[in-house]
Each structure stands twice: as C-alpha cells, then as structure tokens.
C-alpha cells in the first residue's frame, strides 16, 4: 500500500499571545509540534503498512522549520517525507492549502490512501482533508474511527457520526480523515530518531508542483481575515464555598435558584 499522510506543524500551546497594537499573534517562544490529531493518522498509516506492506510518506506545507515535524513523523515510522515550502504559499487559507497539498500528492504518483487528522488544533477547521479529496477528484470519508479491512482495492471502515457509527466501504484510492478513536499513536524510537535525522527530506517549492501561481497563498485564498480580537467572555462568576454540611446545602440551594432564574430547569 502507498499511503500519504499530510501533517501540520502547530504551536504547542493554545495560549498564544496577541500583539494588541497590531492585532497579530505572537508566535515566538512557543514550541512547535506535530498537530496532535495528525499523530492518529500517522499511526493508522503505519499500522496499515505493517499489515499490508508498502510505504508511508508524510507531507507538510509550511515554513522551513516544519522540517522538524516531518522528521518526527519519520521517527515514528513514516518511510519518507516531503516539505512544501515557498514564500508563495504564505497566507494560504484552506482552499489554497488543499490546492498545494493535492498537487504534491499528485506528484508523488500512484497511491492507495491519503490519511489526514480530523483537523488541526490551531486552525480547527477540518476543511483540508475534504479539500484535498475534492482537488484529487476522489471521495472523502471523514471522522473514520476504525479501519476494519483493506482488501481487493476496497477499504471497509467505521465513521463516527452524531448518533453512532456508519459502516462504509470505499473504493481505493480514497481520502480519509481519522478521529482519535482509531489508534494510540506510538512514541518515536531511538533508532527511528537516528534514521529520521539522517534521512534526506526533499523540499518542494511552487516550481516543483503543477500549480497556477494565481491560486497560491494569500492571492489564491478566497477568504480574508479582516479582524482579530479577544472574545469578551469575561463571565462574572458567583463563587460559593462549600466546606461543611450547612454550606454544601446552601450552595446547592443557590445553584437551583440560579438555574431557575435562568430558566434552565
């Protein structure tokens, strides 16, 4: 099986600070990691390779430092990796990101599956997986919680929906986005780390891909962020201490009253 796993490097914490004057995010000093939800896609891909043979390739679009995330993916067990890095990609929204990633997948040649995390923890859109599928002219199965079998050019899987699990069968090739339930991501091994460190990870720029310049980066992105601001969620918390039997009873009474005032019960 040939599997491609698109991954994203994200800030380690969501406590990203804002420059109040310029309204932009301060990303300096924040450690960058592989999007935690991508680890499940990497793990699922490695398990499929272990069961069926083949090759897993991680691909990421980002600044040069995203190379770290790709080497980490290789340390976990991906066979190869490709970094897509070009100033022309800067400012991409999910449309332009999906465009570049799909062009990279195409350049890699034949494949059976593209396995994506459900969404990235920073952007939180979940749009790039379906977007890659649309550009590749393939169907997408989102929220995959379990891959039951892969045989005879078909993949049978479970899809987590609001009220249960759909059992779906898809022709390969196909794009999947996976949820946490699918696997427990393994930790990189020391040997994996050493191998990843030595590995030659190519960097592809716009010139290496079959893409139209007008569809890249900010220029190619239909959406524009016009304002970034802090939510005014400052909730006024009425706090009570419940330390003994009396204060517990009082507190419970007050909560019931409070819920009644808000017509919640």
């Amino acid at each position: 099986m040939r599997i491609v796993v698109p991954i994203k490097q994200v800030p380690e914490t969501n406590a990203v600070r804002m420059d109040e004057a310029t309204g932009t995010m301060i990303r300096e000093g924040v450690e960058a990691i592989i999007n935690p939800l991508d680890l499940y896609a990497i793990e699922a891909a490695i398990r499929l390779r272990e069961a069926h043979g083949g090759e897993v390739t991680a691909v990421s679009m980002g600044p040069p430092k995203a190379m770290t995330a790709l080497r980490e993916a290789m340390a976990m067990g991906c066979d190869s990796a490709v970094l897509l890095s070009d100033k022309a990609f800067a400012g991409s929204d999910t449309w332009a990101t999906s465009y570049v990633l799909s062009a990279a997948v195409r350049r890699m040649g034949e494949f059976d599956l593209v396995l994506c995390g459900e969404r990235a923890t920073d952007g939180d859109t979940g749009q790039v997986g379906p977007g890659i599928a649309a550009f590749l002219g393939l169907p997408v199965v989102s929220y995959v919680s379990r891959i039951e079998s892969v045989a005879d050019g078909r993949c049978r899987m479970h899809r987590l929906v609001e009220d249960g699990y759909e059992v779906l069968e898809a022709d390969l090739p196909c794009v999947l986005t996976v949820v946490k339930e699918i696997s427990d991501p393994r930790l990189p091994t020391l040997r994996g780390k050493q191998k990843a460190k030595r590995a030659d990870v190519p960097v592809w720029t716009a010139g290496d891909l079959d893409v139209e310049p007008s569809k890249l980066g900010l220029e190619g992105s239909p959406t524009r962020v016009v304002k970034i601001f802090r939510p005014s969620v400052a909730r006024k918390c009425e706090k009570l201490l419940a330390a003994d039997e009396t204060s517990v009873a009082t507190a419970a009474d007050r909560v019931v009253e409070f819920l009644q005032t808000r017509e919640l019960i």
Partner: peptide, 17 residues
C-alpha cells in the same frame, strides 16, 4: 469564529468569490 483554541475571535470575509 473562534481561533487558536477559542482564545481569540477572528472575523473573516470573502470579498471576491
């Protein structure tokens, strides 16, 4: 929409599409 884990809000528009 909330961005960066809901710590900030972003207003987005689509001017030309």
């Amino acid at each position: 929409r909330p961005a960066i884990g809901g710590n900030i809000l972003a207003t987005i528009k689509t001017p030309r599409h």
